[in-house]
């Protein structure tokens, strides 16, 4: 036990930490706790009934399922896009690089309307898919498409800088030792970008869970089939059922938190293993 104050070269640790905590409280924790307080108006049985009705359960499955699928898709193709942007030189590269961020800037409702127009039965893309028996708009697939769209930038932007930092010497060294391209990717490159990929995946996943604007246009919002949890919450709010709305929100919050925690642990574990620190 030491009574000496630890001195750091960076001044203002106490001040910075204090500010961080106050800021986080004001911006994140207090509003979130309000949801919990509001929910507390319900008894346990009431709470349980509200959050376990088949309609709510279906919406949880859809929201988390579609978000997970969309985040997974983004992880795969985001990695591919980042790879192309980092590894190859071609004309129009800057343009494509700028396009990546567009889903961030676009109002989500606009994205939803545009996607609906494209994928509806008479839309540009939808007219070709419909004869094949694939309906995208107004189905869970539509939700998945919308969530994939809005989550695209996350993986690209987290993986890109890490990929840029991998020294070509490492790959050359592996090639000199007889490794083929697949082995170089799997054993050298992938371990290095895995933590960043996980971060991108987690961000895209979290963003998809909370997404509302783009989804409601393309989803069709049929109860039990294509109704997402955020919409259910809005519906409850419109009926002045604040306690019911927050109850559903609280469950969503807890599940999201647990999932993100798992992702963070995975990331910490892989980073630790990679000894990148």
């Amino acid at each position: 036990m030491s009574t000496f104050k630890q001195h750091s070269v960076l001044p203002g640790f106490n001040l910075a930490l204090g500010f961080t905590l106050i800021y986080l409280s004001l911006i994140v924790l207090i509003p979130l706790s309000a949801a919990f307080f509001r929910t507390a108006e319900l008894t346990w049985t009431e709470f349980w009934t509200v959050v376990t009705t088949p309609r709510v359960l279906a919406s949880y499955r859809l929201t988390f399922g579609a978000s997970f699928a969309a985040a997974l898709t983004n992880a795969l193709f985001g990695l591919l896009i980042a790879w192309v942007l980092v590894r190859y030189q071609f004309t129009g590269k800057r343009l494509i690089d700028a396009l990546i961020d567009l889903p961030f800037a676009l109002p989500t409702a606009v994205a939803g309307i545009a996607l609906t127009a494209l994928y509806a039965g008479n839309g540009w893309i939808g007219q070709f898919l419909e004869p094949l028996g694939i309906k995208v708009a107004f189905t869970p697939i539509g939700i998945y498409v919308a969530l994939t769209f809005i989550g695209l930038p996350f993986v690209v932007r987290t993986v890109q800088p890490v990929l840029e930092d991998i020294e070509t010497e490492l790959e050359e060294a592996a090639a000199m030792l007889g490794a083929n391209r697949l082995q170089i990717f799997l054993r050298i490159i992938f371990p290095a970008i895995f933590p960043a990929l996980m971060t991108g995946f987690a961000l895209a996943f979290a963003r998809a869970i909370g997404e509302y604007g783009s989804v409601i246009f393309i989803a069709g919002n049929m109860p039990m089939v294509s109704e997402i949890t955020p919409l259910l919450i809005i519906t409850k709010l419109e009926q002045y059922d604040y306690a019911g709305a927050t109850a559903i929100a609280v469950v969503m919050l807890v599940i999201s938190f647990i999932l993100l925690l798992i992702v963070n642990l995975l990331q910490w574990w892989s980073r630790h293993r990679n000894a990148l620190a």
């Binding site: 060294a173 050298i188 371990p191 290095a192 990148l276």
Partner: peptide
């Protein structure tokens, strides 16, 4: 290489074994 180019996600043993394992 001048800057060693060791694989940092592998132990020293695995670094040396790399060429044999691939």
């Amino acid at each position: 290489f001048q800057h060693y180019a060791l694989f940092r996600n592998m132990t020293i043993f695995e670094n040396v074994a790399f060429g044999l394992r691939v």
